[in-house]
């Protein structure tokens, strides 16, 4: 497939063959954007863009569109605006895409979204009129043909890059890969993976998708505390945290002085994940890493220093 034009910095860097870094920002149950914008400011110059989550895990939080715009405008950080299909039908998704285009959003991550029953409003009616694949197809239609799903023309159609998510920890993996192939055929331009905690799983996964030509960023999730690690290990499906990593965090938990403890945990993360990212960069065809250090933005430059660009 001929390379498409790049409308965003993220895509420019991917096309240029750079090892790219993206970050993640999570607007929560909050009525202002200060925290998100402050987080974005800390990421500028280190990552090329940051994902802005869209009601993650079905918790009733702020939407992704407005903060995506604000971090671009105020912090000067490019957004990857996440869009899930859980809460909006195709009319509303299309309307938000037009608005996103008008606001200068260039990257969309097309997600199906978690079921409402997983979140803090489990009584909600699920929508899922579209799914991650048909949302990808819709974005392609808008960008490539300037039309909506039914072929009606759009005036001044926006141009987007559309990314998708993939889970290296999916069991079994085959349907997950077939799904990526499906989305490649529709025209997904990049993929970001779920979190990976071991270099071997990253390598194996990249080998398994070698035939798929969708630039893929491996997901990295630094662990702020033993508690979070333990929780992820026990309750996040498909995530296994290596025991030695958990042991290290458990040891560090014993440090009583809080600032020192934080510092030591940061050091450990930088060392552990810095090496993993370096190895990913050197030994796999991954296009980059997506580092989910939400409210821990200062860790990212340190990680990149170890991992290299």
């Amino acid at each position: 497939m001929a390379k498409r034009e790049a409308y965003s910095k993220l895509m420019e860097e991917i096309h240029a063959g750079k090892f790219v870094y993206t970050g993640e920002l999570e607007p929560e149950k909050i009525g202002d954007m200060e925290e998100v914008i402050e987080g974005a400011k800390k990421l500028v110059g280190h990552v090329v863009a940051a994902n802005v989550t869209d009601i993650p895990q079905s918790f009733a939080y702020m939407n992704s569109l407005a903060p995506s715009y604000m971090i671009q405008e105020i912090a000067g950080l490019e957004a990857v605006c996440q869009m899930t299909c859980r809460d909006r039908n195709r009319l509303a998704m299309f309307a938000d895409l037009l608005a996103a285009g008008a606001l200068g959003i260039k990257n969309i991550l097309a997600l199906t979204g978690d079921h409402p029953s997983l979140g803090d409003q489990p009584e909600a009616k699920p929508v899922f009129d579209l799914d991650s694949a048909s949302l990808t197809a819709l974005i392609r239609k808008i960008t490539d043909e300037g039309i909506d799903l039914n072929g009606h023309e759009i005036e001044h159609p926006p141009k987007f890059h559309v990314g998708v998510a993939i889970n290296p920890g999916a069991v079994p993996l085959e349907p997950e890969i077939l799904k990526l192939e499906r989305k490649e055929a529709i025209g997904a331009e990049f993929a970001q993976t779920q979190v990976v905690f071991e270099i071997e799983s990253a390598k194996e996964f990249m080998k398994a998708i070698k035939h798929v030509k969708v630039p893929t960023l491996i997901g990295i999730f630094p662990l702020k505390s033993f508690k979070i690690g333990q929780w992820m290990n026990n309750f996040v499906p498909g995530v296994t945290i290596p025991p030695n990593l958990l042991d290290q965090l458990k040891e560090l938990k014993k440090i009583e002085d809080k600032p020192r403890r934080k510092e030591k945990i940061a050091e450990m993360n930088v060392e552990y994940f810095g090496e993993i990212i370096k190895e990913i960069r050197k030994t796999t065809q991954a296009a980059g890493c997506h580092i989910m250090a939400v409210k821990w933005e200062e860790l990212i430059p340190q990680l990149i220093e170890v991992a290299g660009r």
Partner: peptide, 23 residues
């Protein structure tokens, strides 16, 4: 499929089980 997806599975599938209803 609790999401009535036509292009599944979603990312919530684990070991062949569904994220809805505690796997």
């Amino acid at each position: 499929c609790p999401k009535a997806l036509v292009n599944g599975p979603c990312g919530g599938m684990l070991d062949g089980k569904c994220e809805v209803g505690d796997y």
